[in-house]
Design a protein around this nucleic acid. Sequence first.
DNA 1: TGATTAATTAACTAAATGGTATAATATGTC
DNA 2: GACATATTATACCATTTAGTTAATTAATCA
Lengths: 112, 112
Amino acid sequence: MTGDEQLDAAFSALAHPTRRAILARLAKGTATVNELAEPFDATLPAISKHIRVLEAAGLVTRGKDAQFRPCALDAKPLEAVSNWTDQYRFIWEARFDAMDRILNGMKETPDE
Amino acid sequence: MTGDEQLDAAFSALAHPTRRAILARLAKGTATVNELAEPFDATLPAISKHIRVLEAAGLVTRGKDAQFRPCALDAKPLEAVSNWTDQYRFIWEARFDAMDRILNGMKETPDE
DNA sequence: TGATTAATTAACTAAATGGTATAATATGTC
DNA sequence: GACATATTATACCATTTAGTTAATTAATCA
């Protein structure tokens, strides 16, 4: 998988609120599929699919314990997401700097 | 739009490599739709649709200059993405810390 | 063995996505 | 007004996504 494809997979996995909620749950520790499904209205197969999407993006790993499939968070791909986003940090921060100057009645380009 | 919906829109807008490339181009300054389309194989309507997706996510704003629609980057939603991702930073960093300890032959839990 | 529990697979549906080709709209120019 | 350029709108197609219900696989338990 290329870097682009990893980002594609990570971003589209993160684009669904249920999947982000699953990650939030897993940040507190591993959980079985049933435990992950419990807070949601969706059926078990639906959650199973969500987990598979997260797994394909490398965000979740699944173990095997008797008939249980304990899921664990792997936050590594989020580092790539964070690095990508950070490329633009100076832009949104610049925007705030500009707004600060406006709010403070300063000139946008100080000339003295 | 709720915070969840904003994240949904941002993450799914960012999930396509063409759209990320468009943002990268806009980071260097505004551009017309034709200019944005130039590096890609896709047809103009396809690029137009991508821009609309970015616009819906609040990542791009469009102006009006004669028959041109100059596009500009608005990185603000990326701050929300960054903040969301940062919740998990301690996890992926902990992973590296653990790996560092292993690579350096240190104990995982120092006891002296 | 038979029943129960955990999870996945299969088959299906509705809607969204990403793309195309072609037509339409709007603006500037000759 | 006629023409060229920039962009969007329409209509269409193929694929993917998100969900369902019902059936199936695995493992435990009684």
